[in-house]
């Protein structure tokens, strides 16, 4: 590789020598193609089709509206309950902390079908909790609430992980300094800790929202599928695919892709690139 050799020759004493271009771009090429080609194919097929039928447009309206609404509620609930939990996990020693830690990780590794069965056994009409609720006249199965529960179950860990990590990484000296300057613990939390953690909290919330938006397996098993009530975009897409209506399935997928991309871009524009890497 003469080019590389030449570079090496020109900057012999440079503090950092760049890796060969070929290495940086050729090695990950298969992965890049794997990620890009299906999306390109989706856009290409969607754009070259005949467009959405009237029935397809109705399905899109109902399913996309339901998906955006349920994933927003799930994310709000996850942030609301998950932030204190993440703070406790990061900062407090309490009995069973390790068990809670494991509990938070499990939904990440569990397949959604396991989540679906487990949710049914807990909140189904004859489930552990569901039978009590049912006796009280509240049924969760086949309602929009079931969709939110399924989404929250699978998506919460992503937020709690990110938030706990953020709280752990904050320089405790800053908090101690605030306290020494006379700030109350609450004031320290709101004026020092939360602003420092905010980028990671937002990144975690975006990740959780994305997971909730894509939830499929647990929803179809636990919530069922009914237009406008429980049939979110992933279910509607699967339904159209299964019904042999591939054209509508493709266009619904494209719509979800666009909606997700726009939302992600908007959030990044709003809070800056700090949210760009959810793992940060």
């Amino acid at each position: 590789m003469p080019v590389v050799a030449a570079e090496r020759g020109t900057t012999p004493a440079g503090p950092r020598r760049g890796l060969p271009v070929a290495l940086v771009w050729l090695l990950p090429l298969p992965l890049l193609l794997l990620l890009a080609l299906p999306l390109v194919a989706l856009v290409w097929r969607g754009a070259s089709g005949e467009g959405l039928s009237a029935e397809g447009a109705m399905i899109l309206r109902q399913a996309l509206g339901l998906s955006l609404a349920t994933s927003a509620v799930s994310t709000a609930a996850i942030v609301g309950f998950g932030t204190p939990l993440a703070y406790a996990l990061a900062r407090k020693r309490f009995p069973g902390a390790r068990a809670v830690d494991l509990l938070i990780d499990l939904p990440i590794v569990l397949p959604p079908s396991v989540a679906g069965i487990a949710l049914l056994l807990a909140f189904g009409r004859f489930g552990l909790v569901g039978s009590w609720l049912n006796a009280a006249g509240v049924t969760i199965g086949f309602t929009t609430a079931a969709v939110v529960l399924a989404q929250s179950f699978v998506a919460a860990p992503f937020y709690v992980r990110a938030a706990a990590g953020a709280f752990r990484r904050i320089d405790r000296d800053l908090e101690i300094a605030a306290a020494n300057l006379g700030a109350s613990p609450w004031r320290t939390l709101w004026s020092v800790t939360m602003p420092l953690a905010l980028p990671s909290l937002l990144a975690g919330a975006v990740l959780a929202w994305a997971r909730a938006l894509g939830e499929f397996g647990a929803t179809i098993m636990f919530a069922g599928s009914f237009p406008g009530v429980t049939q979110t975009m992933p279910l509607a897409i699967y339904g159209r695919y299964g019904s042999g209506d591939l054209e509508t399935a493709i266009l619904l997928s494209l719509a979800l892709l666009v909606a997700s991309a726009v939302t992600l871009a908007a959030i990044r524009a709003l809070v800056g690139d700090r949210v760009a890497a959810p793992g940060a």
Partner: peptide, 18 residues
């Protein structure tokens, strides 16, 4: 909102829409 919203969505299973 996080506390209230799911509570509002639950309840008797009568599909309201569509």
């Amino acid at each position: 909102a996080a506390f209230l919203a799911p509570a509002g969505l639950a309840g008797p299973a009568t599909p309201a829409t569509a």
